[in-house]
Simulated scan of single mutants.
Amino acid sequence: MTRDAVHIHICRSCGGGNWAALLAAIDAADLPVPVRINEQACMNGCARPVSLALQSQGRATCFFAGVDPCDDAADIVATLRAYLAAPAGWIEDARPCGRLRHRLVGRVPAI
Rank of each mutant, 00 (worst) to 15 (best):
M1Y: 07
M1C: 08
T2D: 15
D4T: 14
D4L: 06
A5E: 05
H7C: 10
H7P: 01
H7W: 12
H9E: 10
C11G: 06
R12S: 12
C14I: 03
G15K: 00
G16C: 04
G16N: 09
G17M: 07
G17P: 00
N18V: 04
W19F: 12
W19T: 13
A21G: 13
A21M: 07
L23Q: 15
L23Y: 02
A24F: 06
A25F: 01
I26R: 10
D27K: 08
D27T: 11
D27G: 15
A29K: 07
A29C: 08
L31V: 15
L31M: 09
L31K: 07
P32Q: 08
V33D: 01
V35P: 04
R36E: 14
I37T: 12
Q40T: 14
A41L: 10
A41W: 07
R48F: 11
P49Q: 04
P49M: 05
V50C: 09
V50M: 05
V50P: 10
S51V: 05
S51Q: 03
S51P: 07
L52V: 04
A53N: 10
A53L: 05
L54R: 02
Q55W: 02
S56L: 03
S56N: 05
S56C: 02
G58K: 00
G58I: 00
G58V: 01
R59T: 08
R59A: 05
A60V: 06
T61E: 01
C62G: 15
C62D: 08
C62M: 12
C62Y: 01
A65H: 02
G66S: 06
V67S: 03
V67K: 00
V67W: 01
V67R: 02
P69A: 09
P69R: 00
P69K: 00
P69W: 00
C70W: 05
C70D: 13
D71Y: 02
D71T: 01
D71L: 07
A73S: 15
D75A: 12
D75N: 13
I76L: 11
I76M: 06
I76F: 03
A78D: 07
A82L: 02
Y83E: 09
L84C: 06
L84G: 08
A85E: 13
A85Q: 08
A86H: 02
P87S: 04
P87Q: 06
A88E: 12
G89S: 03
W90P: 10
W90L: 13
W90T: 15
W90M: 15
I91S: 10
I91G: 04
A94H: 07
R95V: 09
P96E: 10
P96A: 11
C97I: 05
C97K: 03
C97H: 04
R99A: 13
L100S: 09
L100T: 13
L100A: 03
R101S: 11
R101T: 14
L104S: 09
V105L: 13
V105N: 11
R107I: 10
V108C: 07
V108K: 05
A110V: 07
A110Y: 02
I111F: 06
